[in-house]
Design a protein around this nucleic acid. Structure first.
Lengths: 122, 122
DNA sequence: GGAACACATGAACACATGCTCATATGAAAG
DNA sequence: CTTTCATATGAGCATGTGTTCATGTGTTCC
C-alpha cells in the first residue's frame, strides 16, 4: 500500500496494512451508540456551571438558592442547569419544606471529577 | 434561619446554618480557575467526533486518512478536530513520509474514557 | 520541475447552547 | 385564602461550535 507499511512489516514484524489497522481498531472500539452516550455524559461535565454545581454537591447536598448564592450565578440559570443534570440522572432532589435539596444521584460523578482533577492539577 | 435548620441541628447534631454550609463547601471546592480548566478538559470528550478520535487512538496510533476512513467522517472535519485536540495537548503527531501519524499525548485520556465507559455501560 | 497524494486552514453557514427576563407554580405561614 | 418565599419554565437573544467547501501547504515520486 505504501512504503511505511513495508518498513513497519520488516522493522516491527507487524504484518498490517492500513486497512488491517482500521479493521482491528474497529473491532476493539466501543460501539458507536455507546460513544454517543459517552459524549453526552462528558458534555454534562463540559459546562462550567454544571461542573461547579456537581463539584459543590460532591461536598454536600444543598438547596437551590444556596447553590446559586455559593456560585454567584442567577437562580434561573442554576435551575435550568439542574433540570438538565436531573434528566441525565446525575443529580436528584427532594423537597424539604420550602426548599428543594439537591444531591448527586450517581457515585460516578465524584470519580469522574476526581480523575479529571488529577489531570488538570498535574 | 429557618425551621429545617433547627430540625437538622436537633436531629443530626449538625450545627450549621445555610450560610455555614455555603462557607464550608466554598472552602472545600476546587479553585474556580481549576474548574474552568476542568470543564475545558471535559469539553474535549463531549463532542462525539473528538471522542471517537481519542477512542480510536486508544487502540492504536493512526494516520489522519485512516482515522477519517475508520470513522466515516470527512478528512477536513477530522483535521479540524485534531487541531483542537493537539492544542489541548491530548493528541500529538509525527510525520512519517506523506502521512501524519497521530497518537494520544496523555495517559489520562485512556483512564478518563475508561471511567466514563464504566458508567455508561452500567 | 511537475503531478499526485496527505493534510491543514479559512470563510461561510447552520445549529446548538446558555443566559436573562418575565412569569408561572407550589408549599407554607399568617 | 392571600401573601410570601423557593423554585420552575418559556421566550428571546447572543454566542459558541462543528461541518462543508474551496483552497493552501508540504512531501514524495517520476
Amino acid at each position: 500500500m505504501n512504503n511505511q507499511d513495508d518498513a513497519l512489516e520488516l522493522l516491527c514484524d507487524v504484518p498490517e496494512t492500513h486497512g488491517d489497522v482500521i479493521d482491528s481498531v474497529r473491532r476493539d472500539m466501543p460501539e458507536e451508540d455507546v460513544l454517543y452516550e459517552l459524549a453526552d455524559l462528558f458534555k454534562m461535565f463540559g459546562d462550567s456551571t454544571r461542573l461547579k454545581i456537581m463539584s459543590a454537591l460532591s461536598e454536600s447536598e444543598m438547596c437551590v438558592c444556596d447553590i446559586a448564592e455559593l456560585l454567584g450565578i442567577s437562580q434561573s440559570a442554576i435551575s435550568h442547569q439542574l433540570r438538565i443534570l436531573k434528566q441525565s440522572k446525575l443529580v436528584s432532589s427532594r423537597r424539604e419544606g420550602k426548599n428543594i435539596v439537591c444531591f448527586l444521584a450517581d457515585e460516578h460523578v465524584r470519580s469522574i471529577i476526581a480523575i479529571g482533577l488529577s489531570h488538570v492539577t498535574e
